[in-house]
């Protein structure tokens, strides 16, 4: 269906600006978009992934990366399932549609059979990785991860309660429980903010989560980070040891956020969008956004991204105890 979409033009001047930059000169040969591009966000306005998509949109518009206007369309619902479903059903092989994808859109179909999986879209590039840290309250008696783990090991399974802000936090707890051989009792909340609130209120013993909501409290000493689930130390929090260097053999656990196209688009189109996303990733705005969110830049593109996703899928399925159906 060939259609023109005039949805949600970012900024009033976009159209004029878009038309002014001569179509596709920046990328030379191959495919270039000929009509409005739709950026689908499979989440409601205001969340972390929505903000990142809007930053991508802002960079594309401000740096005039596209010869056509970019329109943003939020399709929230079902942990990303509604948005993926929308793209796979009504935007098949449409090179003028891009969609934000993240770990949640990969996890939802594992838990919810009717949700469309990421195999319904064509991954283009990943922008960033969110890290997971283990936090305790600032006045906790545990100063190091070793002290904490020893105490956990000395008590029965599930003695310790950890607040979670979503499925990914639960999976991080599973990673940690596996590494120390004792189960932690997850108490599920709706967001990282709620998990933080309950940690500060002393209603739970700890949290494993993304640093975003915790940064201010970490600096002020209201919460303490005992360890991070990655290979090397964090630039932002240089004094937080990694799990591995603390002698805890926990798998690396990070969440990704990237962009995909509808399934069935040509190689040319993919190459074009990979080029655009590379420019977005290299922009100062995007770099600042990632730094402000205490996340790690991780530009993975094309086949590498697909391989990365296949790995993540296996990891998630293992953690959730739902191995792929053979």
């Amino acid at each position: 269906m060939t259609v023109s979409r005039r949805k949600f033009v970012i900024g009033a001047a976009t159209l004029a600006v878009g038309m002014a930059s001569v179509a596709g000169t920046a990328f030379g040969q191959g495919w270039t978009p000929t009509r409005d591009v739709e950026l689908v966000i499979p989440f409601g306005v205001g969340g972390g992934s929505d903000l990142m998509a809007r930053v991508i949109g802002k960079v594309i518009v401000e740096e005039k990366l596209l010869p056509v206007p970019l329109v943003i369309n939020n399709r929230p619902g079902g942990g990303g399932a509604a948005g993926i479903g929308y793209v796979s059903a009504s935007r098949k092989a449409d090179p003028h549609t891009i969609i934000l994808v993240n770990g949640t859109t990969q996890i939802t179909p594992i838990l919810t059979p009717q949700a469309k999986t990421l195999t319904e879209v064509q991954p283009v590039a990943n922008f960033m990785l969110d890290d997971f840290l283990l936090f305790v309250k600032g006045d906790s008696k545990y100063k190091t991860i070793q002290e904490f783990v020893e105490d956990v090991k000395s008590k029965p399974d599930k003695t310790f309660n950890f607040a979670t802000g979503g499925t990914t936090d639960v999976m991080a707890i599973t990673v940690f429980s596996k590494a120390i051989g004792k189960q932690i009792n997850p108490v599920n909340f709706n967001s990282g903010g709620e998990a933080l609130t309950n940690l500060l209120g002393g209603h739970v013993d700890g949290v494993i989560g993304n640093p975003l909501e915790f940064m201010g409290h970490l600096k002020s000493g209201a919460v303490r980070a005992l360890g991070v689930f990655r290979d090397d130390r964090f630039e932002a929090f240089g004094d937080v040891p990694t799990m591995k260097e603390s002698g805890i053999n926990a798998e690396n656990f990070q969440m990704w956020r990237g962009i995909a196209l509808p399934k069935g688009v040509s190689e040319e189109v993919q190459t074009y969008w990979q080029g655009i996303m590379r420019k977005v990733a290299e922009s100062a705005t995007m770099k600042k956004y990632i730094a402000d969110n205490a996340a790690a830049e991780s530009f993975i593109v094309g086949k590498d991204f697909e391989a990365f996703l296949a790995n993540q899928e296996k990891l998630y399925r293992d953690l959730l105890g739902k191995p792929a159906a053979q």
């Binding site: 005039r6 949805k7 949600f8 369309n73």
Partner: peptide, 12 residues
């Protein structure tokens, strides 16, 4: 308000 309302038949 820039709601992506499909206004016309050709707005899809």
């Amino acid at each position: 308000l820039q709601i992506p309302v499909p206004v016309f038949p050709w707005s899809y």
